[in-house]
Amino acid sequence: MKNSHTINQNESKFLAQIALLKQQVEELKIENSDLEMTLLTIIEHGDAMEAQLEEANKQLHAEINEKKIAEAKLKTMIEAVYQQKEDLEIIIETLTEHGDIIDTQLLEELNEVNNLATIDHLTGLANRRHFDQSLTDEWRRCLRENQPLSLIMTDVDFFKLYNDHYGHQMGDGCLTQVAQAIDHSIRRPADMAARYGGEEFAVILPNTNTEGAFNVAVKIQDTVARLKILHADSKVSEYITLSLGIGTLIPSSDNSPIQLICEADRLLYIAKQKGRNQIIY
C-alpha cells in the first residue's frame, strides 16, 4: 500500500513537472514568436530606414549637384560682371584721359587761332586789331592810375620807292628787319610794338611821358640805322630811315585813345613834311 502510494505521489510530481514544462514550452514559443516578430520588425524597419536614407542621399546628391551648377552659373556671372567692371573702369579712364588730351589740343588750337588773330603774319608784331585793343586797355589803366600814356607812330621813309627799286620781296624783308629793330628797342613788358598798316608801325608806351617816349624813339632810330639797309632811292640817306611822331596824354574823360592816335599821326606827318628821318613830339 505504501509502495502504491509512493508511486502515485511520484506520478503526480512527474505530471506536475510535465505540466510545468509544457507551460514553459508554451511561454518559450510565445517568446520566440515575439522575438521573431521583433526581429522582422527590426529588419523591415532597417530596410525602410535604408530606403529612406538612400532616398535622402539621392536628394542630397541632387541638391549638391544643383548647388554646384548654381555655383558655376554664379561664378560665370561674377566673372562676366567683373569683366564688365574692368571694361567700364578702362572706358572711364580712357574717357577721362581722352577728355584731358582733347582739352589741351583744343586750348593749343585756340591759342594758335588767337595768335593768328592778333599777330601780323609778315613781321611777327601785334596786328592792328591787337594794337587797338591794347591801346584801349592801356588808356583805361593809365586813366585809373592817372599816369601818362605815350604813342609813337613811325613810317619807313620813301618805302614806296624802296619797293619799286628792290621789289616786293625785298620790301617785305626790309619791313621785317625794321619791325624787329623796333621790337628790340622796347624793354618793359607793358610796352607794345605793332604793325599799324603798310610800312607804318606804332609803339604803345604806358606810364611814359614825352621825354621817356623820345628816348625810345631815338633808340628805335639808332637801331634801324645800325641795320644799314641800303636804300638807293631815298632822298635823305643811303640807308633806310624812319620818321617818328610822339603823342603823349594823361587819359581823362576829356580825351580818348583816338585822340592820342590822331596826335601821334599828326606829329608824324609834320616829321615827314619837315624832311623825314626825324622825331617830332
Binding site: I90, T94, I101, Q105
Partner: peptide
C-alpha cells in the same frame, strides 16, 4: 595727333 597716343593705348587694354 596728341589724343591718339594715350587713348588708343587704353583700347589695347580692352
Amino acid at each position: 595727333i596728341p589724343w591718339q597716343g594715350k587713348s588708343l593705348k587704353n583700347l589695347q587694354r580692352l
